[in-house]
Design a protein around this nucleic acid. Structure first.
Lengths: 193, 193
DNA sequence: GTCTATATTTCGATAGAC
DNA sequence: GTCTATCGAAATATAGAC
């Protein structure tokens, strides 16, 4: 596999970086995990250095995230809360898929301020906007109607906070499962019966 | 200053670790930032190695966080939402104070699973419990009464998520200020007029 | 493209003078 | 306790055979 190795290196690095952090993973460890001889410079046939690998990795994973098709919605016969729960479940799955990339982006944020700004001004703002539209379409309570933008950020922040606690603590941090969390959040954001 | 240097080293390391991550900061950089000659082993008169420094740093900062006295509440004449906003403001200030420590704990979580568990089983669970008590005492809407534990975790997760977005993006990530965020969250969790 | 081998740099850690 | 000096280990990166 001529060009397949490059992707194997990225795959190996993605897992190692997410686990230990970029700075703590030597190139030799990446080589080993990618099935190359550790200590051979084989890595350098594919990337000039570790920095360039990080860039390529982030580019590839962000593109992958962008291209991900949102699952088709089956809304028939559901009430507002139920619809929102479905969305929140999908959001959490998405975050979980992106988990390794997120850890890397966080640990590399100081070395890549332009990337941070790109994410903020596109992904973040788009999330708020779409969250606002969603929540407004679902018979929201007064608190949501009063400031839909802030309510959308509450929704987004809560999901991110839950996801990160899950990641940090290894498993659900408390007695509240993801499903129960999503239901509680959805119930707060919709009037319900 | 005999023992003062030790604390200066910890202070310097706290800032550097939070900024770049523990693994990426060499001992020489810590020495320089603490006013010692970079490359001299002066560091090793105070700590056996970097691992021991991390332990001492985390211990010191966690003790500092535990000893922090919560600001006295002045509740007279406030309604439920207002009381909760006050609490959320204080929570966010607390998180901001702990910012550097939080980054270090996150980046070191794989190397210190016992510490992670200690945090989960004390700080996390205590936060949920006290959040649940607080939110139940404030004329909550039906969604909160249905599952107060989950509602408390929504509150905690939202605050953590907001705080982390602020930290990651450098400043408020979107058009919603901390104050506006706290108001929206408090309004969702209380019936309010 | 991958290997063995190695040059080079950086970092962790210690010895000994002051 | 801090310094200069330095050793040894580990990591980055290159050279050249296959």
């Amino acid at each position: 596999m001529a060009t397949g190795t490059r992707d194997r290196v990225i795959d190996a690095a993605l897992a190692l970086f997410a686990e230990r952090g970029v700075a703590a993973v030597p190139v030799t460890a990446i080589e080993a995990a990618a099935g190359l001889a550790a200590g051979s410079g084989a890595f350098y046939r594919h990337f000039r250095n570790k920095t360039e690998l990080v860039d390529a990795l982030v580019d590839r994973e962000l593109a992958r995230a962008r291209d991900r098709v949102p699952p088709a919605r089956d809304e028939a016969g559901s009430d507002a809360t139920e619809l929102l729960v479905t969305r929140l479940r999908a959001d959490l799955d998405f975050l979980r898929e992106l988990g390794p990339l997120i850890h890397i982006l966080v640990s590399e944020r100081r070395r890549n301020p332009e990337l941070v700004e790109r994410l903020r001004s596109t992904a973040f703002e788009a999330s708020i906007e779409s969250g606002m539209a969603e929540v407004l379409s679902l018979a929201p309570p007064r608190a949501v109607r009063d400031d839909p933008e802030a309510a959308a950020q509450v929704m987004l922040s809560a999901m991110v906070g839950f996801f990160l606690a899950e990641e940090y603590y290894g498993r659900p941090a408390g007695p509240v499962s993801a499903e129960r969390f999503a239901r509680a959040l959805a119930a707060l954001l919709t009037s319900g019966p």
